[in-house]
Design a protein around this nucleic acid. Sequence first.
DNA 1: GTCTATAGGGTGATAGAC
DNA 2: GTCTATCACCCTATAGAC
Lengths: 210, 210
Amino acid sequence: MATNTKDRILDSAELLFAQQGIASTSLRAITDHADVNLASVNYHFQSKDALVQAVLNRRLNPINQKRMELLHALLHRPDGVPPTVEEILEAFYRPVTEEAIKTRREGRPIVALIGRMYTEPGELLASQIRAMMSQVAAGYLDALSIALPGIPPPILFWRLQFSVGVLAHTFGAMHLIEGLARGRVNVNDSEDVLRQMIAFAAGGLRSPVQ
Amino acid sequence: MATNTKDRILDSAELLFAQQGIASTSLRAITDHADVNLASVNYHFQSKDALVQAVLNRRLNPINQKRMELLHALLHRPDGVPPTVEEILEAFYRPVTEEAIKTRREGRPIVALIGRMYTEPGELLASQIRAMMSQVAAGYLDALSIALPGIPPPILFWRLQFSVGVLAHTFGAMHLIEGLARGRVNVNDSEDVLRQMIAFAAGGLRSPVQ
DNA sequence: GTCTATAGGGTGATAGAC
DNA sequence: GTCTATCACCCTATAGAC
């Protein structure tokens, strides 16, 4: 556990948001779990909304930065070879998947929060997600249009959104998928999950346009 | 608007759950919107949890029944021709998509609730979804294993979940997708959305297994 | 920076009259 | 079946002492 109050609040908020959802997690539950005073949340952050924003930024900004770095590296290789669809998808999926492994190892299953954020209601949240994702989405759309010159842009736009859906649902509904699997697959084998997601989305992106 | 109290409560609850989420919709907001008395919610239903369950059952049971009918018709055609992957996907996607069109025409954009339910937190909700979906998932998994004999069962299981993710994200994050699209696609053209989802998921399901 | 105390309001659920 | 009134509790946010 972190030693300073601000980080303790962020850690506890993140965990409880992931377990119970944002709306049904009270500031009291957060400060109790973090073992800090209730008023400290309003001192370090100004409101619950601002706390939500800080929790998401802390986790997603590094992920999105990593995504952009990986994409840039793919597009500017010394040998000039253009990236494959699979390589682009891996650059998009891997940073989240690695965060999932790392946080689960630390006993902090926060992936559900990342998977759920696209669909959590609330206009403030939606505009924040839009702001964080629009640049990333534009970059990946450009890269995919190079790797898949035969797919018309509007169709490629849809298929990128569907690829995001594959990721969001896999992490957001992991507990449900685990229940339906009845041991047929190991949802904790993150490298396998990553491989399955990439193969599926690559097939979807390449699907013939009728 | 319905004339009897019970249906008025269900209608209002469904709409507000879709707009604001389940946790942040109070019984008072529901009864105010439905223009009925607060106590009537505890008379007709016993608790907020039971109301949530009733709202989801009313909308999802017909959808899942239709899915099973369509699947059964595909598997028992007079000519005995086995269904294609696209036909199986259409049987799964179309009942939800048609409900989306119908309810939007009635000014009741409740698709977001259907798209979101897989990832809304809460053990009670999760067990209900699992109960409703396990039979449907099993039926579609069987059908897909006939249409795609070359795909090993565990991989097919993952790919069915990814296909659910495509649907759930498209409807659950439609407002976000619309914002990112900036006019490049028309999210209200439901037949086009359906066609795009089917083409993507079919490509994903057929993707080569390495 | 951190605490206590509290303002001011919302919450689900129920008892009991009609 | 429908109402009013109310219980017992939870909520976010802040004022003001230390």
